[in-house]
Computed example of a mutant assay.
Amino acid sequence: MPRLRVTVWIAILALALGGTLLHNDSLSAAIAPLVLAYLLVVSPRMLRLAIATIAVVEAAAWWVGGTRLMVDLLPVAIAAFVGWLFARSLMPPRRPLIACAIAAIDGAARLDDIAVARYARRLTVLWAVFQMFLAAFGLLCVLHDRGVIAVPMPSPHVYDLLLPLAVAMLFFGEFLLRPRLLPQVPRHALVGFLRALARVWPELIEN
């Protein structure tokens, strides 16, 4: 599976660079079915309906607005999908996604601490709201680019840069602040934490 992941990301990078350098929308558009097919392969069965819904939305975007609209909407759809993953974990009897991560990396006993459990739930809520906000913001960028709304917004290309930057800022900002906000949990080196998170991620989204 790690080899498949690396292969997919290399292919995505190649398509993105090829589409940009050659000004070829067809190459850029090929990223969408590649990403969705990969997600369908690696995701648990319970998530495949949500991914299939994204695929339908992307197909409708292609039908209505061509490859450009399909490419512009893909980051929006992915942001909404990630927000949905966090939000669904807040619904009983599921456990908040951040709580699952803490239990998987540091041990389930950590959640016996009320402060840790409360922090995990609040951070999960923050991620859900943040991702949904990014998705809504991206949709407004796409609508403005097509003249549907008059409110000044960045172009979809700028949004493609802002989206990962915003996600990285929240992720790394929380990682740096966690020792102060939650001093009772073990500290991790960044690289080790990322490796541990990548290792347990598949079981987290099955929650």
Rank of each mutant, 00 (worst) to 15 (best):
R121N: 03
P93I: 00
L140N: 09
I149M: 04
C141W: 05
I149W: 02
L143T: 13
L126N: 10
I114D: 14
D112L: 10
A104H: 10
V142Q: 02
R118N: 14
L90C: 01
D160M: 15
R110L: 15
R88W: 08
M153G: 04
F86E: 00
A117H: 08
G147E: 04
R88L: 08
H157G: 13
D112R: 13
A99V: 00
V151A: 15
L140Q: 13
V158H: 10
F86H: 08
A166Q: 02
V148Y: 12
I98R: 01
F130N: 07
G138S: 02
A166V: 04
P96L: 04
Q131N: 15
D113F: 06
D112H: 12
A101E: 04
R110I: 07
M132W: 12
R118Y: 11
V167W: 12
D160L: 14
L143N: 11
W84G: 05
P96T: 06
V82C: 08
I149P: 00
A109C: 09
R110C: 14
T124A: 09
H157A: 15
D145E: 11
T124R: 04
R146C: 09
D113Y: 09
W127E: 05
A103T: 00
R94D: 06
D106K: 04
W127G: 06
A128D: 03
A150M: 14
R146G: 14
Y159Q: 06
V167L: 13
D112I: 04
V167M: 14
A117K: 09
L163K: 07
I105Q: 01
G147M: 05
D160V: 13
L161I: 07
L170M: 09
V142H: 00
L161H: 08
A104F: 06
A109M: 13
H144K: 11
P164M: 05
I98T: 03
A99P: 02
P92H: 05
G83I: 02
P154W: 00
D106R: 06
I114E: 15
D112Y: 05
D112P: 03
L139T: 07
S155I: 12
D113T: 07
Q131Y: 14
M91R: 15
R88M: 10
P154R: 03
A120D: 04
T124D: 07
P156Y: 05
I105Y: 01
L140F: 10
L163Q: 10
A108F: 10
V151H: 14
T124M: 03
L90V: 05
V167T: 12
L161V: 04
L90M: 03
A120H: 04
V129D: 11
R94K: 12
